[in-house]
Simulated assay, not measured.
Amino acid sequence: MLLQLGTAALAVICCLSSSADARPTVRLPDPRGEFVRQCTPHMLGRWAHPEAVCSCLHDHAAAVVEDADLREALLRGISETGVPTIETNWVPATKQAEIGPTFTKIAKPALQCMFDPAQ
């Protein structure tokens, strides 16, 4: 009886694992790739390599801006306008005073991205 129960359990486990392997893996969207896709049209005509500028801006914003709300607002502004922008209503009221210092942090890297994105 115990042997039959063990065999049945093993069969169920094998079936479950094989059906799990057969399911297609769910691919989550790449946030960086989506950012570049949205940002690039705003850079066309302004820069020789718009994808490189957008990638560079994304990477520097992600590295320099520690606060998640400010970083998300900055990335939203860049992807929607092509320039570092933060609307005050995009960040909580308690963090709105940090918008200016955030631009100070990102100013030099942003200029570097726009004029020498390979760096």
Score class of each variant (00 low, 15 high):
Val65Ile: 14
Gly6Pro: 02
His42Ser: 14
Leu44Ala: 09
Gln4Phe: 12
Glu80Cys: 00
Leu74Ile: 00
Ala22Thr: 04
Arg32Thr: 09
Gly33Ala: 08
Ala20Tyr: 05
Leu5Tyr: 01
Val53Met: 03
Ser18Cys: 11
Ala62Tyr: 11
Val64His: 06
Ser18Gly: 03
Glu72Tyr: 00
Ser17Gln: 12
Cys56Gln: 05
Gly82Leu: 05
Cys54Lys: 04
Ile78Leu: 02
Pro41Cys: 07
Ala52Met: 10
Cys39Ala: 07
Ala68Cys: 00
Glu98Lys: 11
Pro29Trp: 03
Ala52Cys: 03
Arg71Gly: 09
Thr81Arg: 14
Glu51Thr: 08
Gln38Asn: 12
Gly45His: 08
Cys39Asp: 07
Phe103Ile: 10
Asp30Glu: 11
Asp67Val: 05
Asp21Leu: 13
Cys56Ala: 08
Val12Asp: 03
Leu75Ser: 10
Ala8Asp: 02
Val91Ala: 05
Trp90Glu: 11
Ala11Val: 15
His42Glu: 07
Gly82Tyr: 04
Val64Met: 09
Ala52Glu: 15
Arg46Asn: 12
Thr88Ile: 09
Pro31Tyr: 12
Val26Glu: 09
Arg27Tyr: 04
Pro31Val: 07
Pro31Met: 10
Cys56Arg: 00
Leu74Ala: 04
Asp67Met: 06
His58Leu: 03
Ala62Ile: 02
Ser18Met: 14
Arg37Ser: 10
Leu28Ala: 13
Leu70Thr: 02
Arg23Thr: 02
Pro92Ala: 10
Glu66Lys: 09
Thr94Lys: 12
Leu74Val: 00
Asp67Glu: 15
Ser18Ile: 09
Arg46Ile: 02
Val91Asn: 00
Ser79Trp: 06
Thr7Ala: 15
Trp47Glu: 08
Val53Thr: 08
Arg46Thr: 05
His42Gly: 05
Leu3Asp: 11
Val26Asp: 07
Thr40Gln: 13
Pro92Ile: 04
Arg27Ile: 15
Phe103Asp: 06
Ser79Gly: 12
Asp30Val: 06
Gly6Met: 13
Leu16Cys: 13
Ile13Ser: 12
Thr81Leu: 02
Gly100Gln: 13
Asp67Tyr: 03
Pro41His: 06
Ala93Tyr: 08
Phe35Thr: 01
Asp21His: 13
Ala22Asn: 09
Gly82Glu: 13
Leu75Cys: 12
Ile86Ser: 05
Asp30Trp: 05
Val36Leu: 06
Leu75Met: 07
Arg76Tyr: 14
Glu80Phe: 08
Ala52Val: 02
Ala63Pro: 03
Ala73Asn: 11
Leu44His: 09
Phe35Tyr: 13
Gln4Gly: 08
Pro50Phe: 04
Arg32Ile: 05
Gly77Leu: 07
Ser17Asn: 04
Leu75Asp: 07
Leu5Cys: 04
Gln4Ile: 14
Ala97Asp: 13
Leu74Pro: 01
Gln4Tyr: 07
Ala73Trp: 07
Thr40Arg: 14
Leu16Tyr: 05
Ala61Arg: 00
Thr94Leu: 05
Asp59His: 11
Val83Phe: 06
Ser17Pro: 00
Ala11Gln: 00
Ala93Ile: 11
Val65Trp: 01
Pro24Gly: 01
Gly6Tyr: 02
